[in-house]
Design a protein around this nucleic acid. Sequence first.
DNA 1: ACCACATGCACCAAT
DNA 2: TTGGTGCATGTGGTC
Length: 696
Amino acid sequence: MKRGLEFHDKQDLEDGEDGLENVMVSMEDIQSHQPNEFEPMEEEQIIGAIVGDREFFLNGDDHHLDMNDASIFACTDFPPIPHDFPCMSSSSSTSSAPPLANNIKPFQTSSSSSSASSSNNSASWEVPKSDAEDVNKKILEGGIPPPEDDNCLKFNVMEDLGYMDLIDANEFWDPSTLFQSDQNPQDYNMSDSVQLSQDDNQERKPLLEDYDDQNDGLSFFQGNGELAVIFFEWLKQNKDYISAEDMRSIKLKRSTIESASKRLGGTKEGKKQLLRLILQWVEQYQLQKKRLSEAAASDSPCQYQEPNLNSNASFQYNTNVVPDPSTCFYLSPWMPTPPTYIPPPEPFYPTPTGAGLVGGDPYCNGPSFTPPLSQTVNGNMEYQTMDSTQSWPPSQISAMEASQYRPLIPENDCNVAANANPNDLFSQHPYQLFDENGDRLVRLGSSATKEARKKRMARSRRLSSHHYRHLSHQTQHQSQSSDQSLRMVAENCTMSPANNPGNWVYWPSAAPSPMMMVPPPDAPHQHLTTERPGMQRQNHQKHGSAGKRSQGLKMEKNLKFLLQKVLKQSDVGNLGRIVLPKKEAESHLPELESRDGITIAMEDIGISRVWNIKYRFWPNNKSRMYLLENTGDFVRANGLQEGDFIVIYADTKCGKYLIRGIKVRQTGPKAEGKKPAKKKSRTSSSTAKCSPVAPM
DNA sequence: ACCACATGCACCAAT
DNA sequence: TTGGTGCATGTGGTC
């Protein structure tokens, strides 16, 4: 009996065709097919959804999305703010606050309605400026307040998953550890349903242990074969929504898992509960993303159908049960709510217009560099204009869309017979069902017809335009964008893929690149790594080609986060100086011998300029007060206002300093009217003197 | 109590 | 008179 099971490869994703919506195959197919029945796959195989001698989803390259990584919930084009951003807190330089932006996760419990979750999720990604500190404070105080239901614990655990730090990249749990990669598939004969007995589970137990042993896996899951069953069940139920790529990329920090497990009692049941929560967490993201796509695909012949959750017997995927092709997809019982439109996730960083996405990621929007770092005696603010007329290239957008916001909808053109051209996309990467004679029964994929393809493309365009609108807010404001700036980086920094492969490289426009300049909180001075520890790894990256990805990742390697400062009124006022947090300044910036300080050429990542900023200190009591002076133009050029923040990086290869102004979204009158909350206002003259800089 | 920092404001130089 | 510079001081956080 032939069971067709074909997986999408990366190229397929990049082609913008046949996305994960095609991940629709009965699990028995997965279980029963033989390895040689797979289509040849490229180097970045997405799915190894076979238990046993095949990888079970979670395998492939090492580009893991961390579950802590907000990017798996949203595309944030913004380079991550260090998890432990000492300066993130407006009032304390020593705060260990998790980066606000990165901790705002659309995290919901499944118990709440999907619609509520959706809206909350959406809102979570758009933290209004006025709420930013509040949210951050809440986080600092122990997390977002739990919902007023009986899911407090659950919520907290989920919250942990969302907010856990990801500093130690070596401490992740890979869900694939639930399965042994070289296990004989026969041992995992779950073909005729997953109603596994305890014995079955027990048989699997050693697998988990072995895996843990070999991989320093999570002891938390050791010996608990039921977890594997749970996981498998979940996969079966959500195979349509959770792509293998997504699953593969999930990594959890071990300590977080273990901590969460403890919070759940540390019992076997607790572990199971935790696993469910984790899966639910993943599921929510993915399912909602799909629903978004579903909502967007209004012209889809496949209208959403609320599954009969009570009749989930039809979802048992028993051997002889072929999913009804008329059913667009099956909702997981864990996601028992109707679809709700969810806007594409956005980074919380606001646009000046108060809407949309701030694309100001220098590493997506493009850093630019010109001259090497030079400390001058010129205290005047100078800049060297660079070509900043970039805009987010459509190719980039489309690429991103294709990979990130691409609809994940299993379309309803799934009744397509098995007459597909072997050369078409579907034949290359589809998930197919075959009847018992080996004939393909249905094609659950979406690329069966040109019509379906057109529709997908239309959806993609819609989503793309949606995304682009957000980006436009940013790019219009800052007149910048990514690829060009990045090219300039390569050129001006005398670095290019050719001559400096390990350093700054040109980032192809087709591969919008997240920059992950997150210093480990515990070692903020460490070099930036290619893995963004738990923040905003972007979804589109995981679908990008390995080559592009690796190329982009190289860019980050020489960047080192130095410090960040949330701008106060006095920082953005006419004084043209920004007070720096003392601790970070002393530790990460050049040591100052005299109070006059030094002038540092800082390359403005955001607007492609180089500013000569004076770094100095004032004696203050028995201490010092560190300042950046001549920042007025920088602030104005970036349109920075109170509540926005700056980030200073160092390019360790070029010996440069990079500065970047990051705007925080302002929404509504609340943000507009925000004033320094705790500071008293004194004379009117001083107020006028420190009047906010008008938005540019 | 100490420290960091936001900012008020006095002082000074330039216009 | 205006704008820039630098110090002083109050507030809030941390130890």
